[in-house]
């Protein structure tokens, strides 16, 4: 086993070999998930706590299902309505939970770096389910698996990420992962939604869709948050759709077999045309959701193996 991480806090610390190992294992779980008996025992006896400090339905459901299919005891905590309202700090919440001896902690938080901070204070494995604008590693891994299955490889592809790059943790994790795997990454979006210093990331930056999408293999659309639509970063929803919304005409600049991706939930008619999203020949958006469960199972499996190995070494014998 090459995967040597204690936590999955981001794509940044992962090696290409580790990424490949996650994806290979996830393939097995894709098969399991498509079979009738969707059960494995990789996490039997372990406790998984999902702490979401930010609203999420899809990601939380995906992590929950992944944990349950691997036999973990899964608990969901909706943090935005609980202790934080009572003035408890993140660290205190972490210490409280730590005392319940969880094995896997899945955390989403609205502030960049908050999951790293939490990971320093607990002695279980922490999975970042999205922190601020920083990283969302399992999303990048499931996108990678989707691309690899659709294109047959995950290297030397030209991939365009379009939309609100500045506020997107999905974009950051994807840029890091796709570059580690030796792909060409293009970013397309209005300059107000591009982070400063982005050119230093070794990506090509475009503000024109037709130019940016030329001959790409993969078109990855990002969700535009509703609160950014009115006047602050872009003038209006309709102008954004006209210039950056993915429709058949803009897609025609990409390679004929280019696939279309979206991390969801979609704003049809804002960043993506409904027909393209539903086009089964081009859109792999439903596959992404399916891969999400498998990838999360793979990551948790690998982290749990490491956790058990470390505990054996420490002589605690908890898992013996």
């Amino acid at each position: 086993m090459q995967f040597s991480q204690t936590h999955l806090l981001g794509i940044e610390p992962l090696s290409p070999v580790e990424i490949t190992e996650v994806l290979d294992l996830a393939e097995q779980y894709v098969d399991l998930n498509q079979s009738e008996r969707k059960h494995a025992d990789a996490l039997t006896g372990l406790t998984q706590i999902n702490m979401f400090f930010e609203n999420s339905t899809r990601t939380q459901a995906s992590f929950e299902l992944a944990g349950k299919r691997l036999g973990a005891d899964v608990m969901n905590m909706a943090m935005q309505v609980s202790s934080l309202k009572k003035g408890e700090t993140l660290i205190d919440t972490a210490l409280t939970l730590n005392a319940m001896h969880p094995d896997l902690l899945v955390v989403r938080h609205p502030h960049s770096g908050a999951v790293d901070l939490l990971a320093q204070k607990v002695n279980c494995s922490v999975l970042n389910a999205g922190d601020g604008r920083h990283e969302h590693p399992t999303q990048a891994l499931l996108d990678a698996l989707t691309i690899r299955r659709a294109k047959g490889r995950l290297y030397r592809l030209s991939i365009a990420i379009c939309g609100d790059i500045a506020h997107s943790r999905v974009a950051r994790s994807n840029i890091l992962l796709l570059q580690k795997m030796e792909n060409r990454v293009r970013l397309i979006g209005p300059p107000t939604l591009m982070p400063a210093g982005i050119a230093d990331f070794g990506v090509e930056v475009f503000d024109d869709m037709a130019e940016g999408l030329r001959d790409v293999d993969v078109v990855m659309m990002l969700r535009l948050q509703r609160e950014r639509m009115d006047g602050g970063f872009i003038p209006s929803e309709r102008e954004y759709y006209f210039r950056y919304g993915l429709d058949a005409e803009k897609l025609s600049f990409a390679k004929p077999d280019a696939i279309v991706m979206h991390p969801g939930p979609m704003n049809r008619g804002v960043e993506i045309d409904g027909e393209i999203a539903d086009d089964i020949n081009r859109s792999v958006i439903q596959d992404q959701v399916e891969m999400g469960v498998a990838v999360r199972m793979a990551v948790m499996d690998l982290l749990a193996r490491g956790l058990r190995a470390r505990r054996r070494e420490a002589g605690k014998g908890v898992m013996a």
Partner: peptide
């Protein structure tokens, strides 16, 4: 401060 570091770490800059 805005720039590569802030963008990489996702910090408001």
């Amino acid at each position: 401060t805005s720039g590569k570091f802030a963008s990489l770490k996702g910090l408001p800059a």
